[in-house]
Design a protein around this nucleic acid. Structure first.
Length: 882
RNA sequence: GCGCGCUUAGCUCAGCUGGUUAGAGUACUUGCUUGACAGGCAAGGGGUCACUGGUUCGAUCCCAGUAGCGCGCACCA
C-alpha cells in the first residue's frame, strides 16, 4: 500500500473495474478457486428470470441483492456456489412492445405475418434483451454468466415440448371448449390468476322478460349487472324451492328486444333472496351460466368478437337480428348503454339500483376481462397439486417467512385447471397438430400431409415452471443437472407464489421426482416512503441505476438488506435511507484509510501478537461475537439483523471506541506497543471486510486490494471468518463497559457546563474498582486525573456524576452554579429512585421470589444494590452542595 | 364474506423463545476547522409500545376481542 486513499469513497471509480475483473477471472463459476471440479458440497440458486422487456427496477435490485448475498456467503464458506442467470421471453409483454414499435411505423403484426413478426421480435431481443443482464452486473450480481439461459432457447424449447407431450400422454392435459378469461385488448385467453378483481360501483338493472308462453302476461323480472349480454340469453333460471315462480316452471318467456323465446329452468345455483330470485342465463358469457347451460342443455350463443364488440353472427333468426339492429359492431360498454336505453323506451326496465360488484381485470393491461367460450388447452391440476402440497406440509420445502405456508396450501387445495394456451405469436408454439377431426401431439411434427399445427403458444409460466431443471439441460441427463438439482434456495417476491413458485414445485416433483429447491425465501415488495407502489404514472419511482451511479451499488444493496429486517410485506424506500447506507460505506472507507495509514506497512497476513491490552481484548471479543452472530443470522435468513450487527460493530464499536484508543499507542513512542495495536487494527479490518463482502462486494474488494498481500487475488474467494471462542472475553467487555460509562459521564459534564474542547480538566474518580486511566484521560481530555477509594470531603467547585460503582468529580472553578447543579443531580436522583422503587416492590413480592426464575431474582438484587448505591452517592453529593 | 400482515420517538424502522432505565437512523437543540471521516465527532430533548380484556409473580412481547391502515382470495346474477 503506497498510494493514499481519497478522503471520500467514490464508488463510480471502482465498481465497474472490479466487476469486469471478477467476471473475466471466472470467479463466478462454481468450481473456485482451483477451477477443478471438486467434491465440495454445492450451493445453487436459479435466478427468477426477469423479462427481456424489463429494465432493472427496485424489485429486481432487492431480490438480486439477497441472492448475491447468499451466493457470495456460501462461496466464501467453501461451497461450490452456482447462481444461474437468465431471462424470460414474457409472451404478452414482449409481443406488445414490438407491436407498439410497429405501430410507430404504421404497421400491424398482421401486415408482417407470423413468421416475419417473430423474426422482428428476435431482432428486438438481440438489440435490447441483454440490457437487464448488464444492469444486474452493475448491481454486483455474481452469476455464472457462462450458464445464462433464455426461456426460448432451443434447449428450453425442447424441455417445454417434453413437458407438454408427457403430461398429455399421462392424461394430465386436455383440450376443450370452456369458459375462460379473455382479454379483449390482448386478444388472448389468460389464466385465472392473471385476473385481478376490483370492487367497483356499478348498477343492478331490473329487466322485465314478458309474455309467458307467448301470452301478454307481465312475465318475470330478472336482475343483472350486465344487460348487454342478454342478446345471448338462452334461459331464465329460478330456484326449484322458490314457490313464487312455480307457475312458470318449464314455460317460456320472450327475450326483450331480441324476441327469442327462452325457457324458465330450475337450478339450485339461484339464490332466492338475491334480486328477484330469477337469473338471466347467458351460457357463453358467464362461468356460472355456462354451468347452468350445461346442466340444462341450453344453447350457447356467443355475442362478442375477440376484441369485445357485439356480434350477431350466432343469432339464428333474421327477426332476432332485426330486433337489435344497430347494435352489431358496437363496443361492449357502449352496447350496454344502448340496450338499457332501448329497454327503458319499451318500458321493460323496471328499476336500477346502485350496486357494488367485483370486476375482473387483466393483470397486465388492466382491461376488463370477458368470460369467453373458446377452445383451449388445460392442465389437469389436482394430481400434480397433491404432491406439491405434501412437499410443503412435510417440510421438504421450507417457506420463509413461514406464514406463506398457509396461503400456499390454501391456494393449492382450491386449484382449478390451468388454461395454458395463449392466442399469441411470441412464445413456444403448442406441439399439437390437427387434420380434420384428428389430433396429434408430439415433440416432432407428424408425418403425412394435411396436418396443421395449433397456432397458439403456451402461457409463459408453463415454460418457467421448468426453470430449475431446464436451465441445466433437462430433458438431457447432463452433468450439471445431476450436480446442481435440486437447487438450494429460491429467492423471489411473494406476488408470484402462485404464478411461479407453486408451478415449479409441481413440475419439479413430477418430472424430476424431487423438489426444485429446499427453501423459498420470499422477499418483500419495494414501495415508496409512503407505502405506495412505485409506478411511472405516480412519479414516485426511484431508478436503481441512478442510485448506483450516485451512491454506489453497495449503498443500494446495503439499504435493502438493512431494511428487510422485519420481514414485513413491504419495504419503504427513500433517498434518505440510501444516503444513510452511502454514509456507512464512507465510514468503512475512512476507517480503512486510518488503518492503512497507520498500519499499512505491516505484514500482510496480520497475526495478533504481542501484548494485548484491555481495548484489544475487548474489540477482539466483540469481533468474534459479531462473527458468530452474523453467521448465525445469515444462516437463519435474518439478513437485516446481520446487516445491523455489522453496522453497529463497525461504527459504534470499532470506529467510535477502538480506533480512538488505538491512537494512543499508534502515535506513541513505544514501538512494541505500536506493532501490537497495528496487528489488532489489521486483524479487525480484514475480518470485518470479509464479513461485509456479501453485503457490499465492491468497496470491500477495493479496500482488500490495498490491504491484502499479493497472493490473495480477491476477497470474494477468501474464507468466511470463523469465530474463535477463545477470543470471547466477558471480563474485558465488562471492564470496557465500565470505562465507557465513566467517559460518557465526564463528557456529559463537559457538554453541560460548556467546557471548551481545548481546555484540559481536572478529574477525581472515587472508586474501589480500577479503571484504565490512560483511556479515560485521552477520551475525555483530562489534564490531571486522580483516583481515590474514598473521599472524606466532597470537592467544592466541582460538577459530579455517578456511574456504576464510582463517583466522578470534575473541577470547574467558577463554572458551577450550586443551584443548577442541585437541580441537575436531583433530576438524576429522582429518575433512579423511580426505578429503584419498582425493583424493591418486585423483591418484596413473595410471588415473585417464589415463582420467578432464580437468576431473575438474583439479577434484581444486583440491580437494587447498584441503584441504591448510586442514589446514596447522589444524596451525599446533594447534601454537600447544601 | 374468508384469510394474512401492520399499528413502538415528528418520520422510517429494530426489539427473533416474557424480566436491564424500550433502542437505531433521521429530523430537532447545543458545542466542536479533535492529524480516518463535516457523507464527520460529542452531548441532549423526545415514547402511558393503537385500544380493551385475559394468561402470568411479571406483558411492547403470549391469547382473545375492537378500531384504523395495507394486501391476498372469493362464481352469487
Amino acid at each position: 500500500m503506497t498510494e493514499e486513499l481519497a478522503k471520500v469513497y467514490n464508488p463510480a471509480e471502482v465498481e465497474q473495474k472490479w466487476y469486469k475483473y471478477w467476471e473475466e477471472s471466472g470467479f463466478f463459476k462454481p468450481n473456485q478457486p482451483t477451477n477443478k471440479l471438486t467434491d465440495k458440497p454445492t450451493f445453487t440458486i436459479v435466478i427468477p428470470p426477469p423479462n427481456i422487456t424489463g429494465s432493472l427496477h427496485m424489485g429486481h435490485a432487492l431480490n438480486n441483492s439477497i441472492q448475491d448475498l447468499l451466493i457470495r456467503y456460501k462461496r466464501m464458506q467453501g461451497f461450490q456456489a452456482l447462481w444461474v442467470p437468465g431471462t424470460d421471453h414474457a409472451g404478452i409483454a414482449t409481443q406488445n412492445v414490438v407491436e407498439r414499435e410497429l405501430k410507430k411505423e404504421g404497421k400491424t403484426k398482421d401486415d408482417l405475418g407470423r413468421e416475419k413478426f417473430i423474426e422482428r421480435i428476435w431482432d428486438w431481443k438481440k438489440e435490447y434483451g441483454g440490457r437487464i443482464t448488464q444492469q444486474l452486473r452493475r448491481l454486483g450480481a455474481s452469476c455464472d454468466w457462462s450458464r445464462e439461459r433464455f426461456t426460448m432457447d432451443e434447449g428450453l424449447n425442447r424441455a417445454v415440448k417434453r413437458h407438454f407431450v408427457q403430461l398429455y400422454k399421462e392424461g394430465l392435459i386436455y383440450r376443450g371448449k370452456r369458459i375462460i378469461n379473455w382479454c379483449p385488448k390482448d386478444r388472448t385467453a389468460i389464466s385465472d390468476i392473471e385476473v385481478t378483481h376490483e370492487t367497483k360501483k356499478g348498477s343492478l338493472w331490473f329487466i322485465r322478460y314478458p309474455g309467458i308462453e307467448g301470452s301478454r302476461d307481465q312475465g318475470i323480472i330478472v336482475a343483472t349487472t350486465r344487460p348487454e349480454t342478454m342478446l345471448g340469453d338462452t334461459a331464465i333460471a329460478v330456484n326449484p324451492k322458490d314457490e313464487r315462480y312455480k307457475h312458470m316452471w318449464g314455460k317460456t318467456v320472450e327475450l326483450p328486444l331480441v324476441g327469442r323465446h327462452i325457457p324458465i329452468v330450475k337450478d339450485d345455483f339461484v339464490e332466492q333472496t338475491f334480486g328477484t330470485g330469477a337469473v338471466k342465463v347467458t351460457p357463453a358469457h358467464d362461468p356460472n351460466d355456462y354451468e347452468i347451460g350445461t346442466r340444462h342443455n341450453l344453447p350457447m350463443i356467443n355475442i362478442l368478437t375477440p376484441d369485445g364488440k357485439i356480434t350477431l353472427k350466432e343469432l339464428t333468426e333474421q327477426r332476432e337480428k332485426d330486433g337489435v339492429a344497430g347494435i352489431e359492431g358496437m363496443d361492449r360498454f357502449k352496447a350496454r348503454e344502448e340496450i338499457v336505453k332501448r329497454l327503458e323506451e319499451q318500458g321493460l326496465l323496471v328499476k336500477v339500483e346502485d350496486y357494488e360488484t367485483s370486476i375482473g381485470h387483466c393483470y397486465r393491461c388492466n382491461t376488463v376481462i370477458e368470460p369467453y367460450l373458446s377452445d383451449q388447452w388445460f392442465v389437469k391440476i389436482k394430481p400434480l397439486a397433491e404432491q406439491a402440497i405434501a412437499a410443503v406440509e412435510e417440510g421438504k420445502i421450507k417457506l420463509i417467512p413461514e406464514r406463506w405456508n398457509k396461503l400456499y396450501l390454501q391456494w393449492m387445495t382450491n386449484l382449478r385447471d390451468w388454461c395454458i394456451s395463449r392466442q399469441l405469436w411470441w412464445g413456444h408454439q403448442i406441439p399439437a397438430w390437427y387434420r380434420g377431426e384428428e389430433i396429434f401431439v408430439g415433440e416432432e411434427a407428424p408425418k403425412g400431409d394435411g396436418w396443421q399445427q395449433d397456432p397458439d403458444v403456451f402461457d409463459t409460466w408453463f415454460s418457467s415452471a421448468l426453470w430449475p431443471f431446464s436451465v441445466f439441460g433437462w430433458p438431457e441427463e447432463t452433468e450439471d443437472l445431476k450436480k446442481f438439482y435440486p437447487t438450494d434456495v429460491l429467492v423471489t417476491s411473494y406476488d408470484i407464489i402462485f404464478f411461479w413458485v407453486a408451478r415449479m414445485i409441481m413440475a419439479g416433483l413430477h418430472f424430476m421426482k424431487d423438489v426444485p429447491f429446499r427453501t423459498v425465501y420470499f422477499n418483500a415488495l419495494v414501495k415508496d416512503i409512503h407505502g405506495k407502489k412505485m409506478s411511472k404514472s405516480w412519479g414516485n419511482v426511484i431508478d436503481p441505476l441512478e442510485v448506483i451511479d450516485k451512491a454506489g451499488a453497495d449503498a443500494l444493496r446495503f439499504t435493502f438488506i438493512a431494511l428487510i429486517a422485519g420481514q414485513g410485506q413491504d419495504v419503504k424506500l427513500s433517498e434518505d435511507k440510501i444516503t444513510e447506507a452511502r454514509n456507512f460505506a464512507n465510514k468503512i472507507w475512512n476507517v480503512s484509510r486510518f488503518v492503512l495509514m497507520g498500519a499499512g506497512n505491516r505484514d500482510v497476513q496480520s497475526q495478533v501478537s504481542g501484548e494485548l491490552e484491555l481495548a484489544d481484548r475487548w474489540i477482539l471479543s466483540r469481533l468474534n461475537q459479531t462473527i458468530k452472530k452474523v453467521t448465525k443470522d445469515i444462516d437463519s435468513y435474518e439478513f437485516g439483523e446481520a446487516a445491523k450487527l455489522l453496522y453497529d460493530f463497525i461504527w459504534g464499536e470499532f470506529c467510535d471506541w477502538y480506533v480512538e484508543i488505538a491512537k494512543i499507542r499508534l502515535y506513541g513512542q513505544d514501538e512494541k506497543a505500536k506493532a501490537a495495536v497495528q496487528n489488532v487494527l489489521l486483524e479487525v479490518l480484514e475480518k470485518t471486510l470479509k464479513l461485509l463482502h456479501p453485503f457490499m462486494p465492491f468497496i470491500t474488494e477495493e479496500i482488500w486490494s490495498r490491504v491484502a498481500g499479493r497472493e490473495s487475488k480477491t476477497i470474494m474467494l477468501e474464507a468466511w471468518p470463523e469465530a474463535d471462542e477463545k477470543m470471547i472475553d466477558p471480563a474485558a467487555e465488562d471492564e470496557m463497559e465500565h470505562l465507557m460509562e465513566a467517559v460518557r459521564a465526564v463528557r456529559n459534564i463537559r457538554a453541560e457546563f460548556n467546557v471548551p474542547h481545548g481546555s484540559e480538566i481536572e478529574v477525581t474518580v472515587v472508586s474501589k474498582r480500577k479503571i484504565n486511566d490512560r483511556y479515560l484521560k485521552t477520551l475525555t481530555k483530562i489534564g490531571k486525573l486522580s483516583f481515590v477509594e474514598k473521599l472524606d470531603k466532597k470537592p467544592a467547585q466541582s460538577a459530579s456524576a455517578v456511574a456504576s460503582g464510582m463517583e466522578i468529580y470534575v473541577a470547574l472553578a467558577g463554572l458551577v452554579d450550586p443551584e443548577k447543579e442541585t437541580a441537575r443531580l436531583t433530576k438524576e436522583k429522582e429518575k433512579l429512585e423511580g426505578e429503584l422503587k419498582k425493583i424493591s416492590a418486585r423483591l418484596a413480592d413473595g410471588n415473585f421470589l417464589s415463582r420467578a426464575k432464580p437468576e431473575s431474582v438474583e439479577n434484581e438484587k444486583v440491580r437494587q444494590q447498584e441503584f441504591s448505591t448510586k442514589v446514596k452517592m447522589l444524596e451525599e453529593r446533594l447534601a454537600s452542595l447544601g
